[in-house]
Amino acid sequence: MSDTAAKAPRWAIWLPLALFAGFFVLVMFGLLRPASHDVQSAMIGKPLPPFNLAPASADRPGLARTDFAGKPRLMNVFASWCVPCAAETPVLAELAKRGVEIDGIAIRDRPQDLALFLARNGNPYARIGADNVREVQLAIGSSGVPESFVIDGKGTIRYQHIGEIRPDQIDMILGKLAEAAK
């Protein structure tokens, strides 16, 4: 039985432990990192793709790519069936009062639902485009409602805000708009 003396090399014996240590470090990082299921758009810094959406409400024009010229604008992706969107409307009204031009993209909304929503929550939008099959939403890399995009005067996406804008974030948004104006 001279063959039985064969042993695994030393490095191989410690390898499993080393791999486990690597696993441990990796998942420690995973536990410590803030949990986020947000999907960031990869379109930031890129120009808006061409689009032309029909009006979603009777008293506002629709929204097209060509509308984004001149000064920076806030593009708000929202829907009447989304609860945080309703919570966001006072903040949008405040932004509009401070001179921000806000355009809306209404996702999969029936005209009557949207009219009711705007009547109840106010209408801070300059234009509202109806995106009934999420054509524009998918084209700008937005994955939910509400989301807001800062678009500069050349039509370039400068900033994406995921979720509703909270009152304490108004100044931050104004800052992003001012930055986009430069």
Partner: peptide, 23 residues
């Protein structure tokens, strides 16, 4: 960490004396 890490350390310490057996 305690269970797997401990077992792997024990393995590393003892496996050096465990031969792989018949060829």
């Amino acid at each position: 960490a305690i269970n797997i890490g401990g077992a792997l350390i024990l393995f590393a310490l003892r496996a050096a004396t465990v031969t792989e057996g018949e060829r």
